[in-house]
């Protein structure tokens, strides 16, 4: 069976999704402090990698990457509530782009599976 990534339309769809998703994240006062002072181009590339991974596209993301990439944010107070906000933005991004509900659920469950790595537990 083809991946959600392919069903969405591959790379072009992911590029469109990154803009929508990143804009939602930066517009969220509850989580924006974790993104202040970061290079926006690099951050967008990371989000593209994240969206590619959670939709089952070509990637080599590992739990270790997720753990190490977020460790400095844990010190800043990153916890489950922030993770929930990001999942929420991911869900509404996909809905806005017209992704079917069952595909959204699949993507969210993959994203959910990274929770313990992101929060270094």
């Amino acid at each position: 069976m083809s991946s959600v990534y392919e069903q969405l339309g591959g790379e072009a769809a992911i590029n469109a999704a990154v803009d929508v998703f990143y804009r939602k994240v930066l517009g969220d006062k509850y989580v924006v402090r974790f993104f202040e002072g970061v290079d926006m181009d690099k951050q967008a590339a990371k989000q593209r990698a994240f969206l590619t991974m959670v939709t089952g596209g070509p990637n080599s993301y590992t739990g270790k990457d997720m753990r190490e990439g977020h460790r400095h944010l844990i010190k800043m107070g990153l916890d489950d509530s922030h993770f929930d906000h990001i999942l929420c933005h991911l869900r509404s991004t996909l809905a806005e782009l017209g992704v079917a509900q069952d595909l959204i659920d699949t993507v969210i469950s993959v994203a959910e599976s990274t929770r313990d790595d992101v929060l270094d537990r």
């Binding site: 990154v18 803009d19 517009g27 926006m40 967008a44």
Partner: peptide, 18 residues
């Protein structure tokens, strides 16, 4: 530049076009 980058992005410009 960095502040404007964020403003432009939030005002609807795609990251690819900044």
């Amino acid at each position: 530049v960095n502040a404007l980058r964020q403003k432009a992005f939030m005002a609807g410009t795609s990251m690819q076009d900044i």
